[in-house]
Amino acid sequence: MDSLLSPQLLAAAMITGVLYALISLGLNLVYGTMRLLNVAHGDLVMIGAYVAFIAFSLLNIGPLVSMFGAALICGFLGWLSYKCVFQRLLSNGQLLSRLEENSLLLFFALSVIIQNLAILFFSADRRGYEYLSAIVEIGDVRLTGARLTVLIVGAVISAAVVFFLRFSLFGLAMNALIQNRDASAIVGINVDRVQMSSLIFGFGITGLAGALISMMEPISPVMGFPYTMSAFVIIILGGLGNLWGGFLAGLLLGVLEVYGVALTGPEWRSVLVYGIFVLILIFRPQGLLGSGKTAR
């Protein structure tokens, strides 16, 4: 076992953290702007991963290119689900009164549909492909090229997304919506369009993250669920709807998970993630960084 202070472990934690941050950002956007709790979020990771896998094995296109395709396809799914499902949910008074619960049921249904479609098309087998599998050494750290690439690309994309959300007009509108929905409409923000865009954008970056993940891990139709759970841990840790808090919490969970597994063993990985998840919900549902009111 590596020493806990080894840079090797730190690098692993960084990789997981960056991916988590990216994935949870998508979940947070969708929750923040619309109060929709997407339990199908991890399935978008899966879709992104399959897009990259197919592009690589059938068309010989590398994941660094196909990840944008994955983003487009997941973004399209965001648009589709908005038009078919969520526009109605968000405009129906009776359904709105229990919006979050209803959104959970709807996404639960979508998750089952997506996973089973994936099994129909790709079978339930685990798959993977070799890409940049040569070992790279940087100082004491030994990484496969793929993992190094994921770290760099993931960090760049995350930074780009954060800057985009911070400085673009769309990002500002989205932030306004997160802060105060009614006021946003009054100052002339087209709420419907921003909602649709955040669903597209949130789905898109998640698909992209999925493509990155496919470079390092085997993929399967049910691979998404743990990511859903992790993403929920993260956005709750960071405070629901708080994009920056979520980003930091993503990095934090990456560290917790990698070090936790190093201390206990790989079979404890799921228990660790779900355990943190359950404890956080019971003891600090308002998040570590938030200070809002608690459920009593």
């Binding site: 709790l37 339990v39 979050e100 619960e101 959970l104 669920f225 759970m229 929920f232 709750i236 079979e267 404890w268 799921s270 228990v271 779900y274 355990g275 998840f277 359950v278 919900l281 019971i282 549902p285 459920a295 009593r296």
Partner: peptide, 27 residues
Amino acid sequence: PVLRVRGPYFVILSFGLAELVKNLVLI
């Protein structure tokens, strides 16, 4: 403790709790 968690938080908690128990049994 579980039922002190309300609304949407309870819903996702129930989801995670089932997976936690499943993994504990697996281990």
